[in-house]
């Protein structure tokens, strides 16, 4: 009997070996029209503003997509303005304040359409799936993603711990526009 239990336990242990599948063809993302995103909390009429949906969960819980996002963050030179998340001529990404909303789809919208005062639009230049990967990675800088999926290794020297070692913090919508991002007076 004891032996049977041991064998069953060994088999159960083996089942933990596969953490996740790498999806080389990422889950399809609907066209922009299918993903309405609220850009501002101010809305006409009396109804409450539309909230961003829960789409993209699959991207945030998958270590492969997050690591791809991390690679693309460098490849597409997001670092040029946002540095390694600490901010430079662009706002910091690793803090908990989000000028245009901290939900995944807000970040997607920011990358796809651009924002005033410098954030360029990458519409048509970055495939939708890759935008989702980058946005998911941006959220992982603030540990908005599960710890076991967040990237756990930096190839270069980094000014901060790798993403999976950061403390999880809930996103605070709103935030302030840094002086560098404000329109000239």
């Amino acid at each position: 009997m004891r032996r049977l239990v041991a064998i069953a336990a060994a088999i159960a242990v083996l089942s933990a070996c596969e953490r996740e599948d790498r999806e080389f063809r990422p889950p399809p993302v609907g066209t922009e029209a299918e993903a309405p995103v609220t850009l501002s909390s101010i809305a006409p009429g009396t109804g409450p503003a539309e909230r961003p949906g829960e789409m993209g969960q699959a991207y945030e819980e998958n270590a492969y997509h997050l690591s791809e996002g991390k690679r693309l963050f460098t490849w597409f030179n997001c670092k040029g303005c946002h540095a390694n998340g600490g901010g430079g001529s662009g706002p910091a990404l690793m803090d908990d304040s989000w000028i245009y909303g901290g939900a995944l789809l807000n970040v997607v919208q920011t990358i796809r359409e651009g924002r005033p005062n410098g954030m360029p639009s990458f519409r048509g230049k970055i495939p939708e799936e890759q935008i989702m990967q980058i946005a998911a990675y941006v959220r992982s800088m603030e540990r908005q993603v599960p710890q076991d999926a967040a990237p756990g290794r930096n190839d270069d020297l980094m000014p901060r711990p790798s993403e999976h070692r950061l403390p999880a913090r809930p996103a605070v919508p709103g935030g302030t526009v840094p002086p560098s991002g404000q329109a000239p007076q």
Binding site: W75, F76, G124, K125, I126, P127, Q130
Partner: peptide, 20 residues
């Protein structure tokens, strides 16, 4: 030049200058 190709690839003589 108007598609994602231009983000990564280079074609000297055009604005495409991706290096990755």
């Amino acid at each position: 030049l108007s598609r994602p190709c231009v983000m990564c690839h280079q074609i000297r003589g055009t604005p495409a200058a991706g290096k990755v």
